[in-house]
Amino acid sequence: MWKKDCDRFEYLQTLVTEFQDTDSDEAKEQVLANLANFAYDPKNTEHLRQLQVADLFLDMLTEDNDNFVEFGIGGLCNLSMDPECRDLILQSDAIPLVTNCLSSPREETVLSAISTLMNLSTPLSRPRISDVAILECMLRFSLCESPRLRNLAHVFLQDCCSEEQVIQAQQGMAGQTQTALGIPLPKD
């Protein structure tokens, strides 16, 4: 068992090194996609935490390459399910970076961003996650044609916000067009 665990760490370390050493965007995308997938398996969480992969994923959220952003937020979403990783991500002041992903034209990126915000929700972080701009964005998503986006927005509003907050956000949006605070709806 120990040998397999050691091999797993070395393999993940090789991926991180490959990402850092290559100049090829295509190779970086492949490595990021692999790391994001490995972040889904709890057996890899400790190794990914040791390798500071959450920071790598966070760095990708500010890239111009939409694939980097999509794989970065997907990996962050997977890691944020672990309480220790969640706390590390919150300490990195990730909420604004994750929130920026809500304006992505890619539905997968937006879905991962919403899920990540839900995973990052703690009693201390909830006031930032249930900010009025985010609530208004979720209210707009809840009217979206995409069933996945619409349903996830409803879950966010139920799980991360009080009924009073939702009502206040709805009242604040009354009479507005379906764009608010610079967060456009993703393309369906």
Rank of each mutant, 00 (worst) to 15 (best):
F68H: 04
D93C: 00
L88P: 03
D131L: 04
T22Q: 08
Q158I: 12
G72D: 04
I73F: 04
H154V: 15
S121R: 10
G72I: 06
G182M: 07
T99Q: 01
S125R: 00
S146Q: 06
D5K: 14
L181E: 09
C77D: 02
Q52S: 10
F156E: 07
N67S: 13
F19W: 15
L139R: 02
D59E: 13
A94C: 07
L117G: 00
E164H: 09
L51T: 06
I89T: 02
T62K: 11
F9W: 05
G175D: 08
L111E: 06
E70P: 01
C85A: 14
D41G: 02
D23H: 11
A39K: 01
C161G: 01
R150H: 13
K28F: 05
V155A: 04
E70L: 14
S115P: 00
L32A: 08
V132A: 09
N151P: 02
D23W: 08
Q50Y: 07
V155T: 15
R8L: 15
G75L: 09
D93Q: 15
I129H: 02
A27C: 08
L157C: 10
K187G: 15
R8E: 10
M173K: 11
T109M: 03
L117C: 04
T14M: 10
T62F: 03
G182F: 07
L48C: 04
W2K: 12
D41T: 09
T116K: 06
R8T: 11
Q91V: 11
Q30W: 03
T109Y: 00
F19S: 06
Q170D: 01
G75V: 12
S80Y: 01
C85K: 07
I167C: 03
F9P: 02
F141G: 05
K3C: 06
R148I: 08
E63T: 06
A153N: 00
N44L: 11
S103E: 04
S142T: 06
V155Q: 10
A174P: 00
E29H: 08
D131K: 10
N65G: 09
M81K: 10
T62P: 00
L117V: 02
E108Y: 03
Q13F: 04
K187A: 15
F156A: 10
T122I: 07
L48A: 08
L181M: 09
D66Y: 03
S80P: 01
N34S: 14
F71G: 05
R126W: 08
L149T: 13
M81W: 12
D59Q: 14
L149F: 12
S125Y: 13
A174D: 07
S162W: 01
V53Y: 03
L152T: 02
L117A: 06
C77P: 02
G175R: 06
N37F: 05
T14S: 14
N151E: 12
E46Q: 15
S125W: 11
C85Q: 10
Q52H: 14
T45A: 08
L35V: 10
M81S: 10
V110M: 04
G172T: 02
L102K: 03
L102I: 09
E136L: 03
D5E: 14
N37W: 07
